[in-house]
Amino acid sequence: MDIQLKLEVKEISKAYGNNEVLRRVNFAVLDGEFFSILGSSGCGKTTLLQILIGLLVADAGKIFKDGADITTLEPARRGMGIVFQNYALFDNMTVFKNVSYALQFHSVDNEAAIKKAAQMLDIVGLKNFSAKMPAELSGGQQQRVAIARALALEPDIILFDEPLSALDASTRLDIRRELKNIQRTLGTTMIYVTHDQEEAFALSDKIMILNRGVVSQIGSPEEIISAPANDYVKTFVLDNLQTKIDSLRRFLT
């Protein structure tokens, strides 16, 4: 079995004035992997995502995708999609148009665009909502539109910025399952930013723990649980998880 290296991030640093937001961040993501970036509020997660997709320029470091240097490539030419926390849907367009709209700028003809959008809406379970306006949908449904919109361009990597934090617990569970499904069926690599330990551990093949712009540890959930790299990982990640498990256990017995 030969698993390919999809994305390689080398020595990325970024500062706003004196505020060093990211310090020499290194990591690699394998093809088809579900990779979470976990860290508390303000630790630089969004900044890192924006650098990966090219909306922000890093002060130093390089990004490679499939072995090619994409550090200075325009966002649209990186073959990546992104789902923002506030979805940023085009709220003057129907659900269908939201998904199909961008295709015309990638020399996809009209017929193919319609087919593609229908297919994507089907994948996220919104087939019957095509004609609705975003404002008529629930938060979870809007989120799915944003996912379908990103998928339509067939990116091989999708970035999610805290996609579930605005949703209620059961909707989160649904969407998590769906994300896993999409990952399995389309084989899309997913990079998932969250501050929720539980979420990261439930979803990920691999987790990177970020503490104030510095990588604390990268590993599979099992690796992190069995061998936390430092005190931060122990207290911030594992103790929190433990508390949750304990409370659940008390609740169940």
């Binding site: 924006q50 997709i53 090219g54 909306l55 325009e74 966002p75 649209a76 030419r77 990546m80 999609g81 992104i82 923002f84 940023a88 085009f90 709209y101 961008a102 700028f105 990638h106 919109r149 990103a150 361009l153």
Partner: peptide, 9 residues
């Protein structure tokens, strides 16, 4: 930002 990522001029 969405426009940039989706390649919409």
């Amino acid at each position: 930002a969405v426009g940039k990522v989706l390649g919409i001029p």
